[in-house]
Nucleic acid binder design. Sequence first.
DNA 1: AGGAAAGTGTCTTAAAGTGTAACTTTATGT
DNA 2: ACATAAAGTTACACTTTAAGACACTTTCCT
Lengths: 129, 129
Amino acid sequence: MNSFLGTYSISLDDKGRFNVPAKFRSALEQFGPQLVVCVMDHYLVVFPQNEWSENEVKLSDLNAFDKNDRNRLREFYSKATECEMKSGKILLPANQREIAGLNKEAILVGMSKTFEVWSPEEWHKQGQA
Amino acid sequence: MNSFLGTYSISLDDKGRFNVPAKFRSALEQFGPQLVVCVMDHYLVVFPQNEWSENEVKLSDLNAFDKNDRNRLREFYSKATECEMKSGKILLPANQREIAGLNKEAILVGMSKTFEVWSPEEWHKQGQA
DNA sequence: AGGAAAGTGTCTTAAAGTGTAACTTTATGT
DNA sequence: ACATAAAGTTACACTTTAAGACACTTTCCT
């Protein structure tokens, strides 16, 4: 399994960690446990580190001294956090959990090269639309 | 962990120091504790020393005999200060804290090779825009 | 020199993060 | 269907981190 597919309903422990489903774990182990978690609207997107780097390359021709470019860079970077799979688990940063409305339960959604983390509430909302 | 990512809400002590978040610390230790802090609009930008050098290279192709370029360079250099991470903490220079409106609290924003320091007020302002 | 202000190191405490193991549920093979 | 294995959940002890306090040092000014 080298890509993220399918929908999983998982539970978070009291510190906000979840066990990575077995089918996702192999993909993560292949790319290394380093991840970048990024906030999108009302859900989170988890990038394996290599996948994130590709996005970053696209931004590299922006000028860090140009105000507009700088704002775009900030928009992108400020929502991201590095994290790591440890002992088969991922701890989502507290501020991101809060933004995504995550509590005891979450929905993982495979998106091939990345996967998403939704609160059950948001997930059902977007299912309706 | 080799880059600055994410947004952190931190507190300054009575002397204006803050604890560097663990995820930033490893990146700083990699490049050495020497930093350059410079003022941008209403926030601060912290460069690890190596990254500062690279920026200097970029700035060096500005024309030292062109009045506008010269003004931009002066603007930039005159507000920059060297500082250092000591005992895991960074002391921001008093005049820079003042310009940035920093008091007891601050927002750190990772920008990959550098990170920014915002007052909560300014940060929320720019978040709206 | 004396005093005030700024800068520095270290400790304590509470909260956040981490590893492990036992237990429950789900899946698999015969 | 049953036994077995794998996956997922929960609990708990341990470690690390961040905030705040405080004492000590250095610098600067008069």
